[in-house]
Design a protein around this nucleic acid. Structure first.
Lengths: 214, 214
DNA sequence: GGTTTCGTGATACGAACGTACCATGATGAT
DNA sequence: ATCATCATGGTACGTTCGTATCACGAAACC
């Protein structure tokens, strides 16, 4: 057999090109020729590694979800590493990492929302786990809230599951608001923090007025 | 001059056809011929009343926003009429009216999100007030929260403006979650109510055990 | 060393799309 | 009665898109 090529790598390169050009011009405006040009290959090669456009798009969604998952995990590890700042800071970091504040997360939000819209009318997309699944993020946040509850860090009457869903939906809603320029990142983070304030007990910031200790 | 036709009405009819077919097959999949067929007119007429597709799409967004505004206003008037059930019920009704629970509001959410995504890459859409404006809904909710605060119905430490933004973003996020089938309407309303519970004081539901007053 | 198969290029094809062009009743003004 | 003009139909044009087809070089296996 002739020269073997790493198909997985080629597919990743082309999928990356798809994400880049779609992030720039919108998912609706992207064609196979654009992806080929962005990846620096011929149209035929895009056809070769992804036989149809639909498969290419599905792969792009996979790529997007995987990248984003890694991004959030890295942020979390960076926060939790060493001291372990408690559930509140962890949740805050997780939700912040999901906001479209830099180019990478903007692209993610933009394209993910595009896919979500398409999934309303496209059954193949709707079947993708990233669209339909109850989401691993929900479990993570709910787990952290449960931890916080066990440590008596939460206000009374807080339902971890409901709050987790709510926080995630809030973060998503703020994300699109940022994306379309309705809000700035600062306003969104303020809203998010305020939302957490109403879930967590007012933590005693060591009263700075009187003598702190010595 | 020859037979005069009510242009505004024709435009509304065609715009309605756009909204219907886009709601069914997705905004990305709709062409001028589809709109013409749905409206029961010839392709030429669609061109005649909207010279270009872009103008047709812009008009569709206008139509959508206006319809939705009316819908919410009607719901509010229906709730407030007569007794005036207080800010909490009003806010709840407003946010509920925005959730995609029936076909009409599903279509609205679907298409509005489609337009929002397009506006990320299309300056003409981004300039539309429905995308960029701070939103009248925010003022309404913030005003109601302020009322509630003056009546001492809110928990301490609640910032009306921030909460209004948060509630709207939460509602939007839950809306897309419903739209893509991630959540059911029941879960979403539960989350919304719970969110309101943490803003409003636990209202004394007249303690049913002991003697209420007399 | 031949041959089979993989990787790649160039190009062609049919469909659909937005738009433009031409034609023609119908009708109100003169 | 004539005519200018509004409303509408039919259709053609150029482009772009996804996909299919043909062709060829190179390398591993016999």
């Amino acid at each position: 057999m002739p020269r073997r090529v790493d198909h997985a790598q080629r597919r990743t390169e082309i999928g990356d090109a798809l994400v880049r050009v779609a992030g720039r011009r919108g998912l609706h405006a992207v064609g196979m020729r654009d992806v080929a040009a962005e990846a620096g290959v011929s149209l035929r090669l895009v056809q070769y590694y992804f036989e149809t456009k639909e498969k290419l798009l599905l792969y792009g969604l996979e790529l997007l979800a995987e990248r984003f998952g890694r991004r959030v995990s890295e942020r979390l590890r960076a926060i939790e590493g060493g001291d372990g700042p408690g559930p509140r800071a962890t949740i805050e970091a997780l939700l912040m990492a999901a906001l479209p504040v830099d180019a990478e997360s903007r692209t993610f939000h933009h394209l993910y929302t595009s896919y979500a819209v398409l999934s309303v009318t496209d059954p193949a997309l709707a079947a993708q786990p990233f669209i339909s699944k109850p989401d691993a993020a929900e479990d993570a946040v709910a787990g952290l809230l449960q931890q916080a509850r066990d440590a008596d860090l939460l206000r009374p009457g807080v339902e971890p599951r409901l709050e987790a869903i709510g926080l995630l939906a809030l973060s998503a809603g703020l994300g699109t608001a940022i994306l379309v320029g309705q809000r700035g990142p600062e306003a969104a983070t303020a809203v998010l923090r305020h939302g957490l304030d109403r879930i967590f007990r007012p933590q005693g910031p060591p009263p700075p007025s009187q003598a702190t200790s010595t």
